[in-house]
Design a protein around this nucleic acid. Structure first.
Lengths: 165, 165
DNA sequence: GTTGGAAGGTCTCCATTATAGACCTACTCC
DNA sequence: GGAGTAGGTCTATAATGGAGACCTTCCAAC
């Protein structure tokens, strides 16, 4: 199988780290109460959380300012997402006793500390975005081949034997 | 406001990067077709994607092996998540023409390249997990204070004025 | 031969979640 | 006193997630 000529050392390290952590979580049954990744991804993975974190990275903002800044979020989702982030200690909510009380949201120190990993992920996403779009186009093209179902091998490879378990 | 004595230079860099990228996406209206982050998070953010990527970081695996390895995923979600990852070019699907055809899934090169950012995020999650749990306990404790509704200021701060927009 | 199990899924149905958008309260300005 | 701003909540509906039944092909055992 001449697929990976020689693995990048950094990749090997990351792989080893992840495999190790994965084994640890798995031993605990992936219980959300003990698995940081599940726990975190359930929140950061949500559609709006990261966008709000990045918006708040710019500067502290008030509720309606966020509503204007993130074009297509609804009030309800904004409220809920901010509450989740506040609950996790990533953003701070501050009420000012002005006449109509104004509320300001800002990143906490922990919220700022997540900007690092987030930047790495964003960098990766922007770098590989063309590849992903290309992969999708190819996949969808193959799937949409109604006209010539026999002309495309439909994801079948020809290597003789699967890797032994 | 003596909240941030002096910002960590690395944090400042990440913040600047994210703010810049955010402005660029926003100018395009956050259209999912042009916004790599939306696009990526819609997939990586899903409950199972990252878990499967990490599971496949260990070694290529067959469908039922993955089913056994990730304890509480259903066949349906496994199929769907693998399809999404395959569509995005992160995993490769290889069918071997054994008697009952066997199917093996493995990370593509691009799939391996995401292990780096993923490791950073996992590291962050494990490092801050106690803080998050603590923040949650505090938040929930304050919210559950049915007995003394007037004794707790309910997230009200006393600073005199919000930051000027 | 037929039962049963493994592999690799698909399909159906139900429960949860997301989203839009109407509504609400308090206050100020005109 | 009507409009506008601020910061939400509530409701109704659409989309999604997930469990588990079902399907097909093969082989081995009864």
């Amino acid at each position: 199988m001449p697929r990976l000529p020689a693995e990048n050392p950094a990749t090997a390290t990351h792989r080893a780290t992840l495999v190790d952590r994965y084994a640890a979580w798995r031993a605990l049954g992936f219980d959300a109460a003990h698995c940081p990744v599940r726990n975190m991804l359930d929140h950061l993975g949500s559609k709006w959380s990261t966008l709000l974190l990045i918006a708040l990275a710019k500067k502290p903002m008030r509720f309606n300012a966020l509503l204007r800044d993130v074009p297509d979020i609804s009030k309800r989702m904004l409220t809920q997402t901010l509450r989740d982030l506040e609950r996790d200690g990533l953003v701070l909510r501050q009420v000012f006793p002005t006449k109509p009380p104004s509320v300001e949201y800002r990143l906490s120190l922990m919220g700022e500390s997540v900007l690092g990993p987030l930047t790495a992920l964003v960098g990766w996403a922007e770098q590989h975005f063309p590849d992903i779009q290309h992969a999708r186009a190819r996949f969808d093209g193959a799937a949409d081949d109604h006209a010539a179902p026999e002309a495309q091998p439909d994801r079948v490879a020809l290597a003789p034997v699967p890797a032994g378990s």
